[in-house]
């Protein structure tokens, strides 16, 4: 708390309501996500769970391919799935706090009578899950290197491209999370976890596990519209090198082209989420959603 305290008191942060909101919300999110009574549970949640889900995939893969774990395409698929952990974590991280604050902590009214900025509040609340997600991704990849000899060498990674694409990818996911959160705010229904549902449903459309070309032509646009598709491709190229085995779907595009597409979609999503949030808030106030205290 003391670090956050002094940080919030720097003149730069003090002057900006949005920055202050964002940091305070991130602090709150971290208290909630990391303050597990039991560190053991925390470890299961952020380490064991993701690793197991990747293990399931590895087992399926090796059954289907007769144990061809040395094939170069395996590393590509493994990485895609490891990175995909972030999708659910970020979308849910940003959107879930609406339900959490409204129905669990019942603080929505208290929050929305302060001058804090709701958009930056939700974004801030997502930071904790992003951090946990990143830890899970690193652990999963590390596990892959040790257990399956994934051909990854730290020195050969294209760090600028990995960093840039991941920042864009995370921003786009946060924007999607904002849209989901706004929907939740507006509809006052108890979506258990729309974020998880969406990330689950889109799993098949992002080339995480099989190329988009496998899908019927009329379903493919979903994958091409979803920024994660480009982020996964760029991140995998950055980690494995441009010549590693990969799905043919996006092989016609250069790194720069893919980055451009990802940046454009991300920007569009951010702008859209900004206006969508304002509109949802207006609807919520029109319909009296802040009253809502659906029993939990």
């Amino acid at each position: 708390m003391s670090i956050t305290r002094s940080f919030l008191d720097t003149p730069f942060v003090r002057r900006s309501n949005r920055l202050r909101t964002f940091i305070t919300a991130a602090w709150l999110g971290w208290q909630i996500e990391s303050n597990w009574a039991d560190p053991f549970l925390f470890a299961i949640y952020s380490i064991v769970r993701p690793v197991t889900s990747v293990l399931i995939l590895v087992v399926m893969y090796s059954v289907i391919t007769n144990g061809a774990l040395q094939e170069p395409i395996f590393a590509y698929i493994y990485l895609g799935n490891a990175l995909y952990i972030l999708v659910g974590q970020v979308i849910t991280g940003v959107s879930w706090s609406v339900i959490d604050d409204r129905e669990h902590y019942r603080t929505l009214r208290q929050l929305y009578t302060t001058p804090m900025d709701g958009y930056f509040y939700l974004m801030g609340r997502g930071v904790a899950r992003l951090i946990i997600g990143l830890i899970s991704v690193l652990i999963t990849i590390g596990f892959g290197i040790i257990a399956f000899q994934l051909p990854i060498s730290i020195g050969a990674i294209n760090w600028p491209m990995l960093l840039a694409s991941t920042i864009l990818g995370v921003l786009s996911l946060a924007a999607i999370g904002m849209v989901v959160g706004s929907l939740t705010l507006m509809l006052a229904r108890h979506f258990w976890s729309l974020g998880d549902a969406i990330s689950g449903a889109l799993y098949l459309f992002t080339g995480a596990i099989f190329p988009l070309d496998v899908l019927p032509a009329w379903l493919r646009p979903i994958g091409f519209a979803f920024p994660v598709t480009y982020w996964l491709e760029l991140a995998r190229r950055a980690i494995l090198g441009p010549n590693a085995a990969k799905f043919p779907t996006l092989s016609g595009f250069s790194d720069l082209e893919l980055t451009g597409i990802l940046a454009a979609i991300t920007l569009m999503l951010l702008v859209f989420s900004w206006f969508f949030y304002r509109w949802a808030l207006h609807r919520a106030k029109e319909n009296g959603i802040f009253d809502m205290e659906t029993s939990y």
């Binding site: 708390m1 305290r5 919030l8 202050r20 909101t21 305070t24 602090w27 709150l28 208290q31 909630i32 303050n35 902590y105 603080t107 208290q110 929050l111 302060t114 001058p115 804090m116």
Partner: peptide
């Protein structure tokens, strides 16, 4: 209120908002 925050932390947070 956020059950896992202390009274002071909770009030502090709102003060920041």
């Amino acid at each position: 209120g956020y059950g896992l925050l202390t009274v002071e932390e909770n009030l502090w947070m709102f003060a920041r908002f």
